[in-house]
Design a protein around this nucleic acid. Sequence first.
DNA 1: TGATCGAATGACCGTGCGTTCAGCGCGGTG
DNA 2: CACCGCGCTGAACGCACGGTCATTCGATCA
Lengths: 211, 211
Amino acid sequence: MLRGSGLTRMKSKEDVVQEFRVQSIQEAAIRVISRKGMASATMQEIAEEAGVAKGTIYLYFRDREELVEKTFETAIGELHKRIDAALESEGTFAERLRAVITAKVAFFGQNREFFRLYHSLRMPEGSAAQQRRQKRTCQPQFRTRVERLAVVLKQAIEAGEVRPLDPKRLALFLIETSTAIVMERLSEDAPPPESEDVELIVTTLLHGIAC
Amino acid sequence: MLRGSGLTRMKSKEDVVQEFRVQSIQEAAIRVISRKGMASATMQEIAEEAGVAKGTIYLYFRDREELVEKTFETAIGELHKRIDAALESEGTFAERLRAVITAKVAFFGQNREFFRLYHSLRMPEGSAAQQRRQKRTCQPQFRTRVERLAVVLKQAIEAGEVRPLDPKRLALFLIETSTAIVMERLSEDAPPPESEDVELIVTTLLHGIAC
DNA sequence: TGATCGAATGACCGTGCGTTCAGCGCGGTG
DNA sequence: CACCGCGCTGAACGCACGGTCATTCGATCA
C-alpha cells in the first residue's frame, strides 16, 4: 500500500505530510459518515472535521466518489485481515469457525456506528453505473473471503467433519448468517454479551452442518 | 386500512379518487425507487411515473419524507402478511419453518429491485432524528414477527422438537439468517433455484436446532 | 534578507433538488 | 348558458450541495 522502498527513494518530508493529510481526511470521513450517513455526509463537514479547507480535500482525492471509495476500502481491509488470520489459525474446523465468528463480532462491536453502513456498501443504491462501480471495489474482497472459507469447508467435508454439501454455497451461508447477527447487534440498544451470541451462532451452525 | 364501514358512510366518489391517487403515487414511488435508489429518486420522476404533476403529490403527502415512509410501510406490510400466514399454517414445526422460508424467498424474488433497499430501511442512514423516526415505523412490524416466531419456537421446545435455547434470540437468529440469504440472492446475477437455497437453509437450521 | 514556490484556502459558481402558489380548465349547478 | 369551486398544474423559488480557482502566506533557498 505504501510506496515501494524498492530502490533507494527514502520517504521525503512531502511524502510524510501527504500521507498524514490523506489519513486525516479519511479518518474524518469515517467519523462524519458514521454520524450522518453516507448520503448526508458533505464535503464541507468532512473538511471541517479534518481541520482543513474544503478545497484541500480535492488536492488528495479527485472527487467525492473517490474519497468515499478509498475510505471504505481502507476500513473494510482491516476487517478482512482479521478474518483471514482467524481462518488460517491452528485447530479443528470447529475451532477455526469459532475464531472467525468471534473476530467478526468483536470487530463490528468496536466500530458500531461505521458498520451500520456495511450493507449500504454491499448493496449500493444510486444509478446502475454507480452500483457497478461500487460493486467492483467491494465484491472482490468479499468473494475472496467466501472462497477461502469454501476451501476450509471442503477439507472439513473430506475429513468427515461436515456433511457433504456444496462448499461454496455453504461458505456463503455461514458468512451471511454471522453477518446478519452481527448487524442485528448493531441496531440493538443493549445487545447481549458478545460471547452469548457467538455461542448461539457457533453451536447452531456446527450442529447444522456436522455429520 | 380502509375507512371503516362501521356506521353507514359509504365511500364517496371523492374518497375513491383520493385512494386511487394515493395508490398510484405510491406504486410509482416504488418503481422509481427500485430503479434509482432511495436517494436518487426525485419527486419529479415519481410524479412523471405516476402521470401527475409534481405539485399533485403534495396534495396527498406532506413532504418527500412522508411519501417514502408510507410507501415502504405499505410494501413491507404485504411481506409480513404472507409470513404470518405461513407461520400460522397447519403442520409440525419443521413444516411451518419451511413454509415461512419458502414464502420469504419467493416474495423477495418477486420484488427484487425494491427489496435491495430492505436494509436501508432497517438500518436507516441520515440524521439521528431521521433514524429514530424511521425505526419507529419499521421496527414494530419486525418485532411482532420475531415474537410470533418465538412463541412457535417455545411450543416446539416444550414439545421436545427443538433444543432448549432462548426462544426470542433463536427466533431472531432464524429470521436474520434467512433474510441474509435472501438478500444475498438479490445481489447475485444468477442465483441458484429458489428451492435449492430453501433446502439448504431449512435443513441446516433444523439440524442446528433440533434435539 | 528578499525572491520564489506551491500547498492551502474559501468565496464563488452551476446544478438540481424539494417545495410553493397563482392560475387554469373542467364538471357540476342554478 | 354563465357562473362557480376545486383539483390539478408546472414555472418559479430558495437552498444546499459538489466542485473550481484566484489569492494568500509560510517555508525554503540562494
